[in-house]
Simulated scan of single mutants.
Amino acid sequence: MGFLTGEPLALDLINTRAHTPSGVIDALDTAESFESWLAEQGDRLAPLSSPPTAADLAAVRVLRRHVAEAVEQVRQGARPSPDAVEALNRAVRAAPPYPVATWDGARLIADIRRDGDERDRLLARLAEAAVELLTDPDVVKVRGCEGPHCTMRFLPAHPRRRWCSPALCGNRVRVARYHQRHNG
């Protein structure tokens, strides 16, 4: 579907809704698009055992709004709203992680488990990722794409990064500059 992925999980969540030069995309509009986004996050999020319900999508959209609000405030050096912080904490508390000892056939290993239903576990993991980002000193480096009308957020590995993706907005900006210089 073209979602920007590979950023910290909290930013990937925020980027599930974005205005791009191609139009508005939202991975939380339909169960199918959300399942596609979850599949892209397969190394970080467990897939759901059944298609997400309207209530599941609504809960993730609410969490996304709180995460986006908090990230925007914190990256600008402001205090996040108490409502956003409480929403994150409430989601994490609904399915907190805990270690359990498991015998793997040769030795004891520590596994991380969560109680709660699938939606609670998903929301808890997303909220936990947001807390990790919001408490990381690098959160102030989160940037918005400089592409026209693009609202994607990213954490640049290089300080000169300006676009969500060189293939998306970066290429469009370079092509537009080329045409402006040569057709000026």
Rank of each mutant, 00 (worst) to 15 (best):
A46H: 11
P166F: 06
L168C: 13
A46F: 10
W103V: 10
L123R: 12
V175S: 08
D104E: 09
G147H: 07
R44V: 10
R181Q: 13
A87G: 04
R79Q: 13
G42V: 05
C150E: 06
A167H: 11
H66Y: 13
R61Y: 00
E118S: 05
L28G: 00
R177E: 15
L38D: 03
E132Y: 04
A54T: 01
L126G: 05
G184M: 11
T102H: 13
G184R: 14
L45M: 01
R177L: 07
T5W: 00
T30H: 00
A176S: 12
K141C: 09
R172F: 08
R143P: 02
H179A: 07
D83E: 15
W103A: 10
G116N: 07
G116W: 11
V131Q: 13
V139F: 07
V60K: 00
P96H: 06
T102M: 11
L9P: 05
D26S: 02
S22Q: 11
D136G: 07
D83S: 13
N183P: 02
A39H: 05
A39L: 07
T30N: 00
L134F: 12
E128P: 04
D83Q: 13
S50I: 04
A70I: 05
S49A: 14
L134G: 07
G116H: 09
G144M: 08
V100W: 01
L57D: 00
